[in-house]
Amino acid sequence: MPHVPTPPAPSADKRWKLVTTSLRRQGNAPHALIEGMHAVQQAFGHLEPASLRYLAAALGVPLSKAYGVATFYHHFVLEPPGAHTCVVCLGTACHLKGGPAILSAVERAHRVKAGQTTAGGELSLLVARCIGVCSLAPAVVLDGDIQGPCTPAQVLERLAPCFEEPEGSPR
């Protein structure tokens, strides 16, 4: 396999160290692209063009392929996420038990659509198709914390601190 010279990290940010370590563990092979994206997103919260360019160069992957992979998988985000995230489950059990009502309540209350971030950057609203805790349906995930069963009112109440100044936390 031709040797690909490793390009310099896009910035002096120390978090790049985590990324380069992860890539090196995979021998900087092209098949480490998704692993690399996980590492970047974990470190920086999202994948920006400079990061994709870096990953592509470091792993010897074409730019369009990096973009194609990043946009294929719903877990990867190209825009910076909000300060908080709320994932509403719309899997089968949650669909039957009221997930859609939770989603529309949050959408209406905070004027944000599923898949988007509020204008003030407070909250990213996401949907999932089953997060594997169907016995808690309807379930939501607030900043990584699984909660359920929830009513729309409970979710709105728990989200309220996200919109309080400064640095609210949904708990």
């Binding site: 899997g91 059990a93 669909h95 089953c130 594997g132 805790v133 169907c134």
Partner: peptide
């Protein structure tokens, strides 16, 4: 990968 909604 267990993606079926409703299976865990």
């Amino acid at each position: 990968d267990e993606g079926d909604p409703g299976a865990y």
